[in-house]
Each structure stands twice: as C-alpha cells, then as structure tokens.
Simulated assay, not measured.
Amino acid sequence: MMMAAARKSTNWFAIGVTAAAVVVVLVIGGVVWFANNQATSPGTVPQSSAVNADTGAIAVGSGSQTVDTYIDFMCPICNSFEQAYGSTLQQLVDDGTITLNIHPISILDAQSQGTQYSTRAANAAYCVAVDDPANVSAFVTAMYAQQPTEGTSGLDDATLATIAKNAGASDAVSSCITDGTYTKFVTAITKKTPSQTGSGIATPTIAINGTVLVNQTDLTGDPQKDIVDRLNG
C-alpha cells in the first residue's frame, strides 16, 4: 500500500525547477526584446508641423514640387553645395515653386574627436524646427557659416544653442540641444538616407521630385542646369 501511494505522489521539486526555468527564459526573452527595441527605437520624435516623422524631413516652403537635401553639418561638400545652390533653392521656396525638405543626418561623427558633432548638430536642427520651423533656414545658413573642419571636435552645445537663438529660436532651445533630445531619432533616421549609387550613404544627397541625383555626375555646379531645368522637366 505504501509503495502504491509513493508512486502516485507528485514531484513538486521537479515542477518547481521547471517553473523556475520557464520564468528565467521568459525574463531573458523580455530583456533581449527590450534591448533590441531600445536599439532600434527612434526615441523622442520631433513634434512639429514641419517635420515628417517617417522620413525626418524638415519642410521649408509649400511648393508642389520637392527638393530633398540630406546633409551632415560636418560635411565640407555639403557646405560647397550650400554656397553653390543655396540661394537658388531659397528663391524657389520663396516663389512657391518647391518645398525644400532638409534632412539633417549623421555619418561623420568619427571625424569630431569623439564629440559626435554630426549627431549633436542634427539634433540642434530638430530642436529649432520644433521651437519654430520658420527659423530653420537661417539656422542652416548660420551653421554652414561657422562649419568646423573635419577632424576637429566641432562646435560645443553652448555654441550650437547660441547659433540657434541668433537664428530666431527661443531660449527653450538650449535645453533641447544640451539634453540631446532627438539624438536617437537622428541615428534612426540617418539609416533611411537613400543611396546615390547603391554602395552606401553619402552627403550631400539630393533628390528632385523623388529622383536621387548622383553628385559625381548629375551636379555640375550650375543651379539652372542641375535644379531649375530638372524641375521644369
């Protein structure tokens, strides 16, 4: 009788160990999911009527045609593009021909001695756009005017805040810049930059009405030929 009773008894120890193992697996799975989610999360998304949360574009103007510029504020060729084409693009915005979609991205952090200048500068652009998108064009122009040389530490956050406020932003922009509010958004949105040749991201990358240009062959330095004529078909 005792043996029969023993055979019917429940092994609570084994069940407890199994349950504990299941809990551990679930916890580990949850940690892995959270880590992966954090790694791919865009973080805080800029809340502005001018910012496209999906593409990262900051819209300037309201024309029916579009010119998209993907820029890194540490990129000297982006500055050269601004000097050659900036006034033409602004005129096209002013006369209602185009919406200029500015995409501040970050591919040159390695060129700023560990200060992540490209990311910080792009974050500052989104801070300005959220504060008042009317000041974005002035901010971009001022950033190019004070562009640091590749390989230097870049401008510090206090200087970025001063540039933003001189462009018309309110004092509230300072904490947005120093806190790096949109840093993760910049990192996430940079990955969406279209490739010019299929071999990777480059700056500046320009798209006219959705067609990506190849800097080496499609841009000659002549705004009439490269931008206006393409807009006119």
Rank of each mutant, 00 (worst) to 15 (best):
I189V: 13
T55A: 01
P76C: 11
Y144T: 04
V45T: 14
V31E: 03
G16M: 11
A122D: 09
S174F: 08
A50L: 05
I15Y: 15
A59Y: 01
P104A: 12
I102L: 15
F13T: 11
T69Q: 14
Q91K: 14
L92D: 03
N166W: 05
G61P: 07
A6S: 12
Q224Y: 05
N209S: 05
M3Y: 14
S153D: 05
Y182W: 09
I201N: 09
S64Q: 13
F34S: 13
D131S: 01
G200C: 08
D131M: 00
A129F: 03
C127H: 01
R120I: 03
V130P: 02
A35S: 11
D95L: 07
V173T: 03
A50D: 03
T187H: 10
V31Q: 05
T88F: 02
D229K: 05
N11R: 10
A161N: 06
A53I: 02
S175E: 13
Y144G: 01
T181R: 12
I177Q: 03
Q146W: 00
S112Y: 02
A6G: 06
Q113C: 05
G114Q: 08
C75P: 11
A57Y: 12
F34I: 12
D68W: 03
S9Y: 07
A164V: 07
S49E: 14
V136S: 00
Y117H: 09
D132S: 08
F73D: 05
I208G: 01
W12E: 07
T115Q: 10
D171I: 02
A21P: 04
R230D: 02
T193V: 12
C75M: 11
G114A: 07
P223A: 07
T159I: 10
N36C: 00
D109W: 07
L100K: 00
Q90N: 15
I107K: 11
N166M: 06
K225N: 13
S175A: 14
T159Y: 05
A39W: 00
M2R: 14
N52W: 09
I28C: 09
P223R: 08
P46T: 04
N36D: 10
P204R: 09
Q38H: 01
G114I: 09
T55Q: 01
N52H: 04
G96P: 08
P42H: 04
G221M: 12
T181I: 08
T99G: 00
L155I: 07
K192P: 04
C78D: 09
D229F: 04
T88C: 02
D109K: 09
L89G: 03
A164S: 10
S62D: 13
D68F: 04
T205V: 07
N209M: 03
D229L: 08
Q90M: 12
A50G: 08
I201A: 11
I15A: 14
F139E: 06
D156E: 02
S199L: 13
G56D: 05
G221C: 11
D156W: 01
T40A: 12
I102W: 13
V23T: 10
C127T: 05
S118H: 09
S153P: 09
V32Y: 07
Q111W: 12
M2T: 13
D109R: 04
V23Q: 12
A57H: 11
P148M: 03
T66M: 00
C78L: 08
I28W: 07
S64F: 03
N209H: 04
A110Q: 15
A172R: 02
S137Q: 14
A84E: 13
